[in-house]
């Protein structure tokens, strides 16, 4: 594989991240222990089955261990939000309500207070 130089890194940084929608599933030990693996697989398969233009990604731990598994969603037209204690049923609601109908799902959003 090609070894990078300093300017290669600069090029990668300058190349804008593709501006597309994503779903992130927290997949550190805490998330996996709480069942994130099944949620990730369901979301990946369901998004593919419906042909939705959104990428399902793995990421690390956001720190809200009490609310794992955590799923963060960025879908155009809606604010970026984090859903907590996500199981298969809630994952289905996220796909149907949030992604398809473009509505936030009540009772499952975890919003934490940090400096942006």
């Amino acid at each position: 594989m090609k070894k990078w130089s300093k300017s290669d890194l600069d090029k990668i940084r300058a190349s804008r991240e593709p501006d597309r929608d994503w779903i992130k599933v927290g997949m550190s030990t805490c998330g996996i222990a709480a069942g994130a693996e099944a949620v990730f697989e369901y979301l990946r398969d369901e998004v593919a089955r419906r042909g939705l233009p959104i990428e399902v990604k793995k990421c690390g731990c956001l720190g809200m261990c009490y609310a794992e598994p955590l799923v963060e969603v960025r879908a155009a037209g809606l604010p970026q939000v984090i859903y907590g204690q996500v199981n298969r049923e809630l994952a289905r609601l996220i796909v149907e309500n949030h992604l398809v109908e473009k509505k936030l799902v009540s009772d499952h959003i975890y919003s934490f207070n940090r400096e942006e």
Partner: peptide, 11 residues
């Protein structure tokens, strides 16, 4: 406007 019930609002 959509009113959404939060599970945790950070306060």
């Amino acid at each position: 406007v959509q009113v959404v019930r939060a599970a945790d609002i950070g306060f």
